[in-house]
Simulated scan of single mutants.
Amino acid sequence: MLALNTAIGGLMSAQARFDKSAVKTVQDIAQGKDVVSDFVDQIQARTAFEANISVIKTVNEVTGRLLDMKA
């Protein structure tokens, strides 16, 4: 279950990164700054979030198969 705990931590980290970048985007728009790097950061956070979701799905699948083998 170490993978599950790591993936959950990764989800939380990616969400925090996305939220921070979204706030920075709004501030940068208000100040007339370039927001391309903010958008890139948001895409990277989304990709990290999706990767961690994939890990959770895989852990769930493997756990299910192990339980099926014991039955």
Rank of each mutant, 00 (worst) to 15 (best):
A45C: 07
D19R: 12
A30G: 09
T25L: 06
K70N: 14
M1L: 13
L66K: 02
K33Y: 12
Q31M: 06
L66C: 05
Q42F: 11
T63R: 11
I43K: 13
F49P: 12
A7E: 07
S13I: 08
V59H: 03
L4T: 11
L4C: 06
I43Y: 12
I43H: 08
Q42P: 08
G10S: 03
Q15W: 06
D28G: 03
A3S: 06
S21Y: 06
T47K: 14
F49D: 10
Q15V: 09
A14P: 12
Q15Y: 09
A7D: 13
K70F: 05
G9P: 01
T25A: 05
E61C: 00
S21F: 00
G64E: 15
R46G: 02
Q44C: 04
V35Q: 02
K70V: 11
V36P: 01
T58S: 10
D28Y: 07
V40E: 09
S37V: 09
Q15G: 14
Q27E: 03
V26W: 12
L2D: 12
L67S: 04
E50Q: 14
V40L: 03
V59P: 01
N60E: 10
A48D: 04
A3M: 08
D38H: 05
S21T: 09
Q44M: 06
V26P: 12
S54Y: 13
D28H: 11
A16F: 15
A16Y: 12
T58D: 13
R46N: 03
S13R: 15
V26T: 13
D19C: 10
K33F: 06
Q44T: 14
S13Y: 07
M69S: 03
Q31L: 08
N60W: 12
L66G: 00
V40Y: 03
A14G: 02
A16K: 15
M1Y: 09
V55M: 09
E61K: 04
S21N: 14
V55E: 05
T58K: 07
T6P: 01
E61S: 13
V35N: 03
F39S: 13
V23C: 02
F49L: 09
L67I: 08
Q31Y: 10
I29N: 11
D68P: 00
V55H: 00
A16P: 12
S21E: 13
T63S: 01
F18C: 08
V59C: 04
I29A: 02
Q15E: 15
G64T: 14
D34P: 06
R46I: 11
V55I: 09
K70C: 14
K24V: 05
E61V: 03
F39K: 14
R17I: 02
A45H: 12
R65A: 02
T47N: 10
S37M: 06
T47E: 07
T47W: 02
I53N: 11
K33P: 04
V62I: 14
G64S: 14
L67H: 05
Q44S: 05
I8N: 06
A22D: 15
